[in-house]
Amino acid sequence: MALTTSTPRPPALRRGKRPAAPGELSKKVWATAVMWLLVVVYGFPVLWFLLSSFKPAGELFSYPLTLLPKNPTIEGFTQAWTSFDFAQYFLNTLIVAVAATVLTIVVSAACGYALAKYHSWWVKAFMICVLATTMLPAEVILSPLFLVVRDLGLYNSLSAVVVPAVITATGTFMFRQFFLTVPNDLLEAARIDGSGELSTFIRIMLPLSRPIMLTLAIFSFQWRWNDYIWPLVVLNDPNKFTLQIGVATIVGADNVNWSVLLGASVLSMIPLVAIYLLLQKYVMNADINAGLKD
């Protein structure tokens, strides 16, 4: 039983290192063509959005529509930057997103592991409970949830944004489904070695789940980064406001200042893309086959 190997193996599906077989080239052409077609389809609306953020307000809705800005300007960005305390809101959002992400990963990993590897009836019942958390529209429990947070004394603190968000069905199930694919032999072997259950989880299982951790980190970061109505309701002090609250002030009752809104949206997306690229690199390069073979 080979549990782990220290030598990195080529990850799944990466077979390009071998000398190309006769059909390989045409496969490459096809696959690349399909991918680029999808890139165009997915990218076109995004490109339109990005280029529009450089259009002056007068060009946004002129007819016929044009893809490229005629008189490119960065006024939307500068106005967005100055229309609220961008730096402070940015920092607050960063604190919230990082804290929530770390907690979410730890808690989801533990819970997902338990749901995958233990089979008492109450563990299974709890699995349904976790799923249930996604089943009510957020608005229904907004008011009652607010009272809970207030009664716990969390009102007007960043932790009020973080703590209720830590439980997530998506995260928990990501880990559960992952740990289902980890052979029980590994667990058994650890038990035979005399390793305690929790120590097995922390020492062996947790490190194995790195791609899931990283993927969930991307998710959680995005969720908290783009959170809006909950932070607005539980944060009272403008020094604690998060980025999306600031962005939302651009949308007025009767008017939307589109050029500023586009600028603000682009700015607020940059950190997410950076985080994604950073973490995704580790997911793609992860030597995760170690330990998963039976």
């Binding site: 549990l3 782990t4 992400t101 770390v102 973080v162 790195r210």
Partner: peptide, 22 residues
């Protein structure tokens, strides 16, 4: 096992840092 685990944990030291911060 321990080798993998040890390496894994070292890489994840920032996690405990994050928890402390939280």
């Amino acid at each position: 096992i321990s080798i993998t685990a040890g390496r894994g944990l070292r890489r994840w030291r920032w996690l405990s840092l994050g928890v402390a911060m939280t």
